[in-house]
């Protein structure tokens, strides 16, 4: 019953990892130790792959581990297992919201949830900016402003920011352009 175990193990991960992809990591390491389906090195590799493909690390890791264990069906089952708990929880909340959206208590909760949500999004953006626009290791050695910024990345960022305001292009086009610029200018 490897299928059932795959689904259950990943459903457990999906249920307890709150707050996006990286929250799944401790569970994945634990699963590697307990089941032997994949190794700790596999998890590290998958972090790199997840940064280089669309999709969240939790989803990617479940597909990868399922595939390693039982081929393509295993990959699909493990991924569905990961998604299942959150889908059920969201369905319950969605039903509740549809009924009580105008309730003053629900409105009040959102009054606080919204600014908090945006604060977290800002921090997530800054974390990406830190690794893509700044070169902290070089700056720590030299403490020269010239070394702090990755100038070509910064230039691309400014151009993209202005371009997406002026041009009503699909965001995917900007993603594709950025990939090409990254390859051509060796980011």
């Amino acid at each position: 019953m490897i299928f059932l175990r795959l689904v259950l193990e990943f459903a457990k991960t999906g249920l307890f990892s709150v707050g996006g992809g990286l929250a799944t990591l401790p569970f994945l390491y634990e699963m590697a130790s307990n089941t032997g389906w994949f190794t700790h090195a596999d998890v590290a590799d998958m972090i790199a792959v997840s940064e280089s493909t669309p999709g969240a690390i939790g989803i990617n890791m479940s597909t990868y581990a399922g595939f390693k264990t039982d081929g393509i069906p295993g990959g699909i089952m493990a991924t569905l297992g990961l998604a299942l708990p959150s889908v059920i929880i969201i369905l319950i909340i969605a039903r509740f919201l549809a009924k009580f959206r105008k309730n003053p208590l629900v409105e009040g909760a959102f009054y606080g949830l919204r600014p908090a949500s945006i604060a977290m999004i800002t921090v997530a953006g800054l974390n990406v900016a830190k690794i893509s626009l700044l070169n902290l290791p070089a700056w720590e050695i030299s403490h020269a402003v010239g070394d702090l910024f990755v100038w070509k990345a910064l230039a691309l960022g400014v151009v993209l920011f202005i371009a997406q305001k002026k041009l009503k292009w699909h965001p995917v086009i900007f993603i594709a352009i950025s990939a090409v610029v990254g390859i051509v200018f060796k980011f």
Partner: peptide
């Protein structure tokens, strides 16, 4: 792949900045 994704990460910053700006007005 590494170069391409270093480029894409810059775009991700811009997309997130755009999201924050869009949401700011109705939340804060």
């Amino acid at each position: 792949v590494q170069h391409a994704f270093a480029g894409i990460r810059v775009c991700v910053c811009v997309l997130i900045a755009q999201a924050v700006i869009r949401l700011w007005k109705s939340s804060v």
